[in-house]
Amino acid sequence: MVQDESQKDVDEYLKLFTNYKLKLKEAKAQGLHEKPSYKRELESYKKQLAKNYMTDAKVNDALVEEAYNHISNDIKANHILVRLAEDASPQDTLVAYNKIRDLRKRAVNEGFEIVRKQVHNGKTVFGEELGWFSGFRMVYKFEKVAYNTPVGEISEPFRTRFGYHIVKVFDKRKARGERTVKHIMISTKQGDTSTDAETRIKDIYTKIKQGETFEDLAKEFSDDKNSAPSGGLLKPFSSGQLSVPEFEEAAFALQNKGDISEPIKTNFGWHIIKLENAKPIGAFKELKPELEDKVKRDARSQLIEEALISKLKDKYGITNTDLSYFKTILNEDFYKRNLETSRRF
């Protein structure tokens, strides 16, 4: 009886394995293994499997601590960018590098802001105001240089995937955490004057002061149709996430839940803001798991891999990393286990 059951299991497994191999053969005959979507998915799986092995604990811990320091502090900076494709030729790369070097010299002598405004053309050269930002808001190379540049100084030229940059840091401060707010917005509609919108927002503000419910007024009067149905509620945000600095400053000026701002004006119109929640930056121990995950998904992860590869090279005395020989032997014979090792090996 045991033998019969065992044979039954073997037969079932053999049937499954045969069907599996037939499906693989059919898929290959149809050329599915050459499809770009399949190749992308396979490459993704390879990277996922490698992640558990391509890591260096010391470097990972250092990057996580650095990330916490960055999210705990905000930076106010502007930059000048000379655009350059990632696959640019050596000649084009040298031209872009020399150009950013010249712009830095001019910025030092003539003033960063004067040069930034003069050279911006929105195509090949960008001179942009960045406002306040913190960790993970910029590409890592840019973020690292900005945090390592003293207030009032202009960085040396550096390259990201966008091209060559120089950055000037104007100020640094402790991060203000996260805010969740509700707002009532009166936009300046076509045909209206700014006075019309200001009058309407002041009337609403008077109603709030007289005791009417903020949320009901938002539903009835707010021109922000996305947030009005929920009483004006917006998604949580931190410094630098909004493109409206006046709104951001007014929101962070509110300290206690339920505090309501006076009417403020932005490019979108007039607003009244109500604070729902003020969340400070958490302790390192609390945020560490989240930061570890972000570091693994960020460009920082490349530094971890590079550190591990360098350590392994040193450990095993590897100086020659030419893999061309191995490419020649990874053929059908290799996968069928008919490999005969070359005498060179």
Rank of each mutant, 00 (worst) to 15 (best):
T93D: 14
V64E: 03
T93C: 02
K99M: 11
E43M: 09
A107D: 06
L84R: 02
T124I: 05
A107S: 14
E86N: 07
K105G: 08
K105A: 07
I114Y: 06
L81R: 03
E66H: 00
D92P: 08
L81S: 02
L130F: 09
K99S: 04
A57G: 11
Y53D: 10
N98W: 10
Y68H: 08
S89Y: 11
R104T: 12
I114K: 14
S89Q: 09
V115G: 08
H70G: 00
N73I: 04
E65D: 08
I114W: 03
K117F: 06
M54F: 14
E129Q: 11
F112S: 01
N73W: 02
R116S: 06
T55A: 03
I80H: 06
L42W: 02
E43R: 09
K76V: 12
K47D: 12
K46P: 00
K46A: 09
G122A: 03
R101L: 15
K58S: 06
A67S: 15
Y45V: 15
I114D: 10
L84C: 03
A50Q: 13
I114L: 11
D56A: 04
K117L: 14
D74M: 13
K105S: 13
K123Y: 14
A85R: 14
V108M: 13
V119P: 04
K117E: 15
D56Q: 07
A77T: 07
V64L: 05
D61Y: 00
E110A: 07
I80D: 12
Q118C: 02
V108D: 14
A85C: 01
G127Q: 09
K47W: 06
L81Q: 04
A50Y: 04
